[in-house]
Design a protein around this nucleic acid. Structure first.
Lengths: 204, 204, 204, 204
DNA sequence: CATGAATGAGACTTCATTCAT
DNA sequence: GATGAATGAAGTCTCATTCAT
């Protein structure tokens, strides 16, 4: 890969970010050293500083990419289909990057001390919610969600379920258990929304 | 109370643990220094080392007490009454110690690097689950939960919802929003368990 | 020297400042490492940080003390007596701390990059001038300095002579050569002030 | 001018030296990076290494050129005319390159750590002195300087005055104040040399 | 020749831990 | 027991220098 092509720097950055996400997920923000990150891709400490001004900026860029990836995944998964299809598609895709989950916990813990990360996570939290609300609004129109349900609240519950499953995996839940919690939770919630009054099960 | 009696040592330990929990919650495990902890209670760094061999042991003891507190709260809240009563009692008690939530996120993030903490959190996770399963089993006997529901799974969903609400608070949810997510989630889940077949709303 | 006495910290600070002045004078601000400074007094790097927040603050404190010492020396030397007595007393005292001269050159060079040092040196420069002006004013009253001489300007010339002698020593002038330049310069200047008109040689 | 001719290399070297002098004067030897120097003339770091083996050699070459420039200026200014004419001509020319003054202070400070620079500055100091002595010898022949004056010493005083004025400018003296110190100093010194015995003011 | 990505030695700084008082 | 000065390992970051392109 010649150094002269313009894409080179972007690739190098991406390589570092990938190594850093993995390392930070394993060792945490404070436990991971710049040396650790560099060693993963077989370069020297100094090389990382060519692409990122400091550890903090590296971390922020990782957060940015992670939240964007998650948003992309949500957008792609909750674009159409039934509730369960979407939830399942989303979950399977999300599970393919387990390191991202631990990294997310790390960034949650870093929020109180890093205003930039805090802002990013709070803003992305709101955006995720909106994606889900849009999806649920469509389901309501189709009758798959009861008319008396507050979709904003339901979206909040779904996100809590999601975050809680990730936290659960950190606490020992294996992947299949996590998937069961996620799908059982989703099923119960959807059943709850149609409640005893509705009979529409098309989207369930 | 003279200084030589054993109670004094316990009091001193408790004072340090309380200061440490607060400090670790604010600054994180790595961000909080032994000096910070000592300063909060107005003693010297050296004094902390009289009661705890090192930072790690201090942290582990904090984790132990936090998981015990949480377990106590769960046991007390999910001892009797309806599902919503229990959920509400629990939540109100839990909210009274907000620092504990951030500390819990910290300990989650520390798990991969601290086997002892990892074991503690995984074991307590299982115990929490058992508490909830016992509670749900009773509700099922009383008919408040549908007979075809897997209580172990429902307990897992409830815990995920709980953990997700805490994570949501870190991401910007305020206390009343959090309470709404928690109670709406609990309501939807219970409605889901009784589904379209059951008509029993006594425990809702 | 017990650590419990209050004077201990002041003494430790003074010890570090002395070691630092010597080290900075030899190696320069950038060439001298905190390790170098610590090693001179046989302590560890970390000990220096107990007394000074960082290298910059250490340097500033050194500047402060050096300018104060110089001012004290000027005040003591140019308090009374003839011009030559004062100049000679001053010079002999100043020469006893050669390291201070090189340190002063270092701080001159650091001025453009260190606003705090810049301010300190500029302010002390003005104060030195005032000390000399006061002294010259007295001489004028006594008739040792011609009435038509601008004492402020003469003080400026004297200070330039002083600074130039120090610079000259850096450039190879040995102590006796420096003393000759200083005293010959002072003599010529004083002769110049009384010029061809005055005949008063009492202070020459 | 094709790139292969030797003149090109000389031009490139001169361009780098000029950029480096400016940069080193502003940021100091340690504060100025090779990148800074290269950026000023819009070339890459590597290009500087084509013309100079390392930072030290670049610095030495700068010192050499600066001392040569100063010597040239002294030779040109103190070639003929009266004392004041020479001093004034010299000063005006010297003031046109203020950066050189700060660079000179930098190199003074670097002397203890750079034997090559030390040797250069010490040798040039001697040469400057000889230029002034030659000039003063001529004035003495012409009677503008008293016969009983030690010209070598007077030259030393003049150089101290010069260096002190430069140091004074670093300490806050503006250009007109500096000029006043320089010319008042020169006047007083010359008056001093003719002293109470001589009445010759032709050169004053 | 020129470029600039990469290196790695070395500096500053922090902080858990120890120990003499 | 309590203190806090001192230690030293370890981490972040810089930058002179090299070298493949």
């Amino acid at each position: 890969m010649p150094k002269v092509v313009p894409e080179y720097k972007e690739e190098a950055k991406a390589r570092i970010l990938s190594a850093a996400t993995q390392t930070f997920a394993e060792r945490g923000y404070h436990g991971a050293t710049m040396d650790d990150v560099a060693r993963v891709i077989g370069v020297s400490k100094g090389a990382v500083y060519v692409y990122f001004k400091n550890k903090e900026e590296l971390f922020q860029e990782m957060c940015r990419r992670c939240t964007e990836d998650l948003e992309r995944n949500l957008n792609a998964s909750f674009a159409g289909g039934t509730f369960f299809q979407a939830a399942s598609v989303y979950f399977d895709k999300a599970m393919s990057d387990l390191a991202a989950h631990m990294f997310w916990l790390e960034s949650l813990a870093e929020m109180p001390r890093n205003p930039s990360v805090k802002r990013m996570l709070q803003e992305s939290y709101v955006r995720y919610n909106e994606i889900l609300v849009r999806f649920l609004d469509r389901l309501k129109v189709e009758g798959a969600v009861g008319k008396d349900v507050d979709n904003r609240s339901l979206a909040g519950v779904l996100m809590a379920l999601h975050d809680g499953v990730v936290a659960g995996m950190a606490q020992g839940l294996n992947e299949s258990e996590a998937k069961k919690v996620w799908s059982d939770g989703a099923k119960l919630l959807l059943q709850g929304t149609v409640g005893h009054s509705s009979t529409n099960g098309r989207n369930g």
